[in-house]
């Protein structure tokens, strides 16, 4: 079913909206939650919470594109749950976000930007890189996907994904330096 039809069902308060959303985006929502929470039980809870949040927020919202809205809710709920539980669930492995954190925040003192300001700068940076690099970056650091998974999804080799990420992190750091992020 088309996204706009699903949104219409939400507006009509038709419960089929939930099942159609589940049908179309259920696996993606679950994947986002699992990448963040690393726990099946919590992830399934988050998936259900996402449907509830969609039900409670559409209307009045009429999101476009719907897929981004759904995924943002799933991600925010998962991050919230992870923080509530103080879930430092890995010791040896480095989480994707930590990879980016190490690249951007290692050593240097940085300006007291707000999250929003930094986010806008990252978004601007993403607009100026190649589509493949952008897709790989978002799938890794926003969705939290494994490199092999990105490789499967994009058709790029794992080595190429790794190199692209490494270059993009470096470029992003340079971009933020130019933007005066670091003191």
């Amino acid at each position: 079913m088309e996204d706009r039809n699903i949104i219409s069902l939400f507006f009509e308060r038709d419960e089929q909206a939930i099942s159609e959303t589940q049908l179309k985006y259920g696996k993606l929502i679950l994947k986002i939650s699992q990448n963040i929470l690393l726990n099946s039980e919590d992830s399934f809870e988050c998936v259900n919470d996402t449907y509830l949040a969609l039900w409670n927020t559409i209307p009045p919202n009429r999101p476009d594109p719907f897929i981004s809205f759904v995924c943002k809710i799933a991600r925010n709920l998962s991050l919230k749950k992870k923080r509530d539980k103080n879930a430092m669930k890995r010791n040896a492995c480095i989480l994707p976000i930590e990879e980016l954190e190490n690249a951007l925040f290692s050593g240097d003192v940085y300006e007291s930007y707000s999250e929003k300001e930094l986010g806008k700068k990252i978004d601007n940076f993403l607009s100026n890189i190649s589509k493949e690099d952008r897709v790989v970056f978002i799938r890794r650091y926003w969705l939290g996907e494994e490199i092999s998974e990105i490789s499967d999804e994009t058709g790029l080799s794992a080595n190429s994904v790794y190199k692209r990420l490494s270059k993009t992190r470096h470029k992003l750091r340079l971009h933020l330096e130019e933007e005066g992020f670091y003191l």
Binding site: L28, P63, D64, P65, I67, S68, F69, C71, K72, R75, N76, L79, R83, L95, I97, E98, L100, E101, L104, F105, E115, K116, L118, G119, K120, I122, D123, L126, S127, K131, R134, V135, I138, R139, Y141, W142, L143, E153, T154, G155, L156
Partner: peptide, 26 residues
């Protein structure tokens, strides 16, 4: 810093997200 970065990434535009989420491999 991780939390800060996670929140900052929320500012990535919907268009970029939609592009990445629906990217089709060749």
């Amino acid at each position: 810093k991780k939390e800060f970065l996670e929140n900052a990434l929320n500012e990535i535009s919907d268009e970029h997200l939609a592009e990445a989420l629906s990217f089709k491999k060749r």
